[in-house]
Lab assay of single mutants.
Amino acid sequence: RLRTTITPEQLEILYEKYLLDSNPTRKMLDHIAREVGLKKRVVQVWFQNTRARERK
């Protein structure tokens, strides 16, 4: 399986959204995914991984 490459522009948007809410609802994930042009599951995993990194 190929990994999804997230561009610096997409990362910037994702981090902005993360600062507003680190645990977004399904509806918010849909909205964020459309905004950055990624699949909802990719955005969901990015948020999970970012939360895990923050806990370390």
Rank of each mutant, 00 (worst) to 15 (best):
R1V: 10
R1S: 15
R1A: 15
L2R: 08
L2Y: 08
L2Q: 03
R3Q: 15
R3K: 15
R3N: 15
R3L: 11
R3A: 13
R3H: 04
T4R: 03
T5G: 09
T5A: 05
T5M: 07
I6G: 06
I6M: 13
T7C: 06
T7W: 02
P8N: 12
P8Q: 07
P8G: 03
P8F: 11
P8L: 14
E9V: 08
E9M: 08
Q10S: 03
Q10W: 02
Q10T: 03
Q10V: 06
L11W: 07
L11N: 07
L11E: 13
E12D: 10
E12P: 02
E12K: 14
E12V: 10
E12C: 07
E12G: 11
I13N: 08
I13M: 10
I13A: 12
I13Q: 14
L14G: 01
L14M: 07
L14F: 02
L14K: 00
L14V: 00
L14A: 01
Y15T: 12
Y15G: 12
Y15S: 13
Y15I: 07
Y15V: 07
Y15C: 10
K17A: 06
K17H: 04
K17D: 05
K17P: 05
K17R: 06
Y18L: 04
Y18W: 05
Y18G: 00
Y18R: 02
L19D: 09
L19P: 00
L20G: 09
L20C: 07
L20D: 05
D21H: 02
D21R: 01
D21V: 04
D21K: 02
S22L: 03
S22F: 08
N23P: 04
N23A: 10
N23S: 09
P24D: 02
P24R: 00
T25P: 08
T25M: 05
T25H: 03
R26V: 14
R26E: 14
R26W: 14
R26L: 14
K27A: 14
K27D: 15
K27F: 06
K27N: 09
K27M: 07
K27E: 13
M28H: 06
M28I: 09
M28W: 03
L29Y: 07
L29P: 02
L29T: 07
L29H: 00
L29A: 07
L29D: 02
L29M: 04
L29S: 04
D30E: 10
D30K: 13
D30Q: 09
H31S: 14
H31F: 06
H31E: 15
I32N: 00
I32R: 00
A33W: 02
A33I: 08
R34N: 14
R34W: 08
R34F: 09
R34E: 14
R34M: 10
E35K: 04
E35Q: 06
V36L: 09
V36T: 11
V36K: 02
V36H: 04
V36A: 09
G37E: 04
G37H: 04
G37F: 03
G37I: 01
L38G: 00
L38F: 01
L38E: 04
K39F: 01
K39L: 13
K39V: 11
K40Q: 09
K40P: 14
K40V: 15
K40N: 12
K40R: 12
K40S: 14
K40D: 09
K40T: 14
R41F: 11
R41T: 14
R41N: 14
R41D: 12
R41A: 15
R41K: 15
V42H: 10
V42N: 07
V42Q: 11
V43A: 04
V43N: 01
Q44N: 09
V45G: 07
V45L: 09
V45E: 15
V45A: 06
V45R: 05
V45S: 05
V45Y: 11
V45Q: 03
W46T: 02
F47H: 01
F47T: 01
F47G: 00
Q48W: 03
Q48P: 00
Q48S: 11
Q48K: 11
N49H: 04
N49T: 09
N49K: 04
N49D: 11
N49E: 15
T50M: 09
T50K: 12
T50W: 09
R51V: 12
R51S: 13
R51T: 06
R51Q: 15
R51H: 15
A52R: 05
A52S: 07
R53G: 12
R53T: 12
R53M: 13
E54I: 06
E54Y: 02
E54H: 02
R55W: 09
R55E: 15
R55C: 12
R55S: 13
R55T: 09
R55V: 15
K56I: 06
K56Q: 03
K56E: 15
K56N: 05
